[in-house]
Amino acid sequence: MLGKLFKHEFKATGRHYLLMYSVFFVITLFNKLFLELSVPNNRFFSYFQNIFMLFFVLMCAAIFILSSVLVVYRFYKNLMCDEGYLMFTLPVKVGEHIIVKAVTSFVWIVLSTIIFFLSILILVCGHGLGDFFSVCSKFIQELSIYYGVQLNLFIFIYVCTFLVGILYNILQSYFAISIGQLVGKHRILASIGAYFAINFVLQNIFGFLFIFTNTIDPDLFVIDEIKKAESIIHYLNTFGIISLVLSIILTVVFYFATKLVLTKKLNLD
């Protein structure tokens, strides 16, 4: 059943994302074209150059905003509105619906991020890009001489944090929507309210946790540059691991909470 759910979920969501990616790609190509074919002192040409650059910048923002909106919209429309009458009468467990929707959304968001970086790469390609990469790799090499294993750990932790963060946000919004449907009317408003309420509660809890556990390393304030640099990355890594573990725990909690609400308290009107 999971496989079939995935198949239909990708089919249903793909048409939006693929359209968005194609538009983004076309705009990128036009931009590239205008950048390469520079016609000096032509106002008409530079006008178009600017317009397309503006489109590109807008599209960069839009790809992330639209992706996030689509995640929430799909869950709400497909499960909480009329289509929910079909989805919830399929012989499928509630948990499977949530997992399939969350994983599919995760894949699209990661893909959006990749497309975003790819587009920028296409634009700057040929304009000192090789230099940029060699500077980057040199920078990382030098850093790793300083920090060694700590640096690899740092990169690993923050890539994981980014990926888990995507799932965390998806499941937090699902949980908020499932809380919102408990209210008979004004479900969208209630869902948005629930989302901010969850944020507020969690921020306060973690704010206090960090104050009381006092994780700041006193070495951060010493004068010795090497020691200071070491303790900064050490501090960032400890902080990163703690918040990574917390994100994983909370993501799992959001999943089970959403499942519980939609199993025990489903109310389609």
């Binding site: 059943m1 079939k4 239909h8 009458y85 009468t89 012989p91 499928v92």
Partner: peptide, 29 residues
């Protein structure tokens, strides 16, 4: 749910599918 066939009083079909798509959907599940 495997043995219950339900016709709601509202339309639960989405707009973007073709009839043959929704038939495949039912046959899958």
């Amino acid at each position: 749910k495997k043995i219950v066939s339900y016709l709601p009083e509202r339309t639960y079909l989405n707009n973007w599918m073709k009839v043959c798509d929704i038939i495949d959907f039912f046959a899958d599940f």
